[in-house]
């Protein structure tokens, strides 16, 4: 019994995918307005994965990324993680502050990325909660630049105490011209998934 947690039917999968797509779409629109460039997003992928496998499927545990983490609480509980490659982070910093200051560890750039995550995740969560009529709050963002595995492992540790597998949506986005890699990861508690699926079923 590898995936004892969830069995999703086709309708639920496409509904979830659509909801996430709307959420990410809204989030990216905010970013697009902020930097004045067009951004394309890919259709979200939906995975039920063993918790231990999450780092591998989200780009490799040793990939060095700029990560922003937000804790979601309320009707549903989980985490939203935005990860940007080093190059993307630098490009976004350049685009926004227009300066030549591209040091990722610079406090100014760090808070810029943190704020960016805040805007993205904020619009993502509010569109999800509006759509599903959920009452949720997000914690202030926490930003760091490190190995992907190290950034998310404490979240996975926390989840592994409650479940074996996690549902995750990931989306990549690209900013016009340059191929920029960003990833949006949503990890939800198993019980929160039930809440969301109930809401979806009520919509039919």
């Amino acid at each position: 019994m590898k995936y004892e947690m969830l069995e999703l039917n086709d309708f639920q999968i496409s509904a979830l995918r659509e909801i996430v797509n709307i959420g990410v779409g809204n989030a990216v629109t905010s970013l697009s307005k902020m930097i004045g460039k067009e951004i394309r997003i890919e259709v979200p992928r939906l995975n039920v994965e063993l918790i231990e496998k999450v780092p591998d499927i989200s780009g490799g545990a040793d990939a060095i990324v700029s990560g922003v983490i937000m804790h979601v609480t309320g009707d549903v509980e989980g985490y939203i993680i935005m990860m940007l490659s080093e190059e993307t982070t630098i490009n976004i910093c350049k685009t926004i502050n227009g300066s030549k200051n591209t040091d990722i560890m610079d406090p100014l750039n760090q808070s810029l990325i943190e704020e960016l995550g805040n805007i993205l995740a904020g619009s993502y969560v509010s569109s999800l909660s509006d759509f599903l009529m959920l009452n949720v709050k997000t914690s202030p963002p926490m930003q760091t630049f490190d190995m992907l595995g190290a950034i998310i492992d404490h979240i996975l540790i926390e989840m592994s105490q409650k479940a074996e597998s996690a549902l995750l949506f990931d989306t990549s986005f690209m900013i016009e011209g340059t191929r920029m890699d960003g990833m949006f990861l949503t990890l939800l508690d198993p019980s929160s998934m039930e809440v969301i699926l109930e809401r979806i079923d009520q919509m039919v």
Binding site: I51, E52, K53, V54, P55, D56, G60, A61, D62, A63, D146, M147, L148, G149, A150, I151, I152, D153, H154, L156, I157, S160
Partner: peptide
């Protein structure tokens, strides 16, 4: 070696595990 994983090897071999944060 992945997360929550383990491996044993004899010389000559190198074993690695990537991106340890709160894990040990």
């Amino acid at each position: 070696v992945g997360m929550a994983d383990c491996a044993v090897a004899k010389n000559p071999a190198k074993i690695t595990t990537l991106g340890l944060g709160s894990c040990v």
